[in-house]
Design a protein around this nucleic acid. Sequence first.
DNA 1: TATAAGAGTTGACATTTGTCAACGTTTCTA
DNA 2: TAGAAACGTTGACAAATGTCAACTCTTATA
Lengths: 189, 189
Amino acid sequence: MEELLTMLNDIRLMSTPLVNYLLSVIEAFELRKKQFLLKKGMISNHIYYVSKGILRGYYEDENKKQTTKWFMDEGNVITSVDSFFSRTPTLEPIQAIEPSLLFGIRYEQLYHAYEHYPEFNYHGRELTQKYHVLNERRISALQCLRARERYLYTKETQPRIVERVSDNLLASYLGIKKETLSRIKNSRL
Amino acid sequence: MEELLTMLNDIRLMSTPLVNYLLSVIEAFELRKKQFLLKKGMISNHIYYVSKGILRGYYEDENKKQTTKWFMDEGNVITSVDSFFSRTPTLEPIQAIEPSLLFGIRYEQLYHAYEHYPEFNYHGRELTQKYHVLNERRISALQCLRARERYLYTKETQPRIVERVSDNLLASYLGIKKETLSRIKNSRL
DNA sequence: TATAAGAGTTGACATTTGTCAACGTTTCTA
DNA sequence: TAGAAACGTTGACAAATGTCAACTCTTATA
């Protein structure tokens, strides 16, 4: 919890009333391995800070084929972005890959903070910008690079993630099959 | 200019001092067809509102192969996101596809507004969120769909863009070759 | 207005990646 | 702790997409 406040204060020092409000509404969530934080069809009502563990958001098509859209570990802020901000049922379930500890705030309470503590929009804007920039880079990688290069790029830019998740999940994040990833790793491609 | 203020007031009504500040720092920019708004290696110092026209941001690799990262037309807010927010030289030149009229504000003046008119962080946050959500959807399309489906999805979700740009540029946006796009359009794939 | 440059199409063929099936190894879990 | 499930690897082959070259048709421009 302390670390979350530190992260926010590092963006810009928060006033005591704002801090007190946040402390009064933020809740802790514990997840077991493979447990779901959000299931398909639900509206994402919380945004979470990852204190411990690693999670993924994914998409599952009609044929049950899963595509991992993101991995997030300690220090990151997560939600099903589209669902949370557009208030619609999500196509993107979120699942813990390892046992995880999160701190979450509800949508209404987040917007209450934005309305009543205008300074907090600064934090919201900076955090959204951060993930927006990361998404821009991810789009470049998906659009411009081939399978092998996407793997090397991801290993370079997100080494902790690559070490931490199974090849099965990593392949679906890279947009390739696990067999192809295996061949790439063993230089057969 | 009026339309830009309307767009911002629609997000949340702005105070008169904020409006006056914006009016004092926003400049108009006119571009001819094919003219550059931003060239590779420059730091993106402005963020722009597109009043008339259509532009693209793209990436060019060592072999001069271009990949269009986005198209934006009337009513949108554009910049080279990574460069603008991380204050680094851009890899993403921006070029007008048609003659265009833009209204721009400098980075320093935008942040001046964020600091001195806290209410404006609300607008910055909402706009960043909007494009963040669009990027999330684009990542899904790039990662989950094949060439033909990406074309149909883009025609469905951005019909104005598909009608307005050449197949050459559209193909590079879809991450495929113009020959492949031609075959898709003529149902040979 | 002649000429060049750009845009879209098509065919033949190459390359990349996926599919399916099989197998050994590790890790859960009843 | 035995059996099942998940994971990673490999081979043979199939499907998707790229490459290159040629050709037409339009559009821009000297």
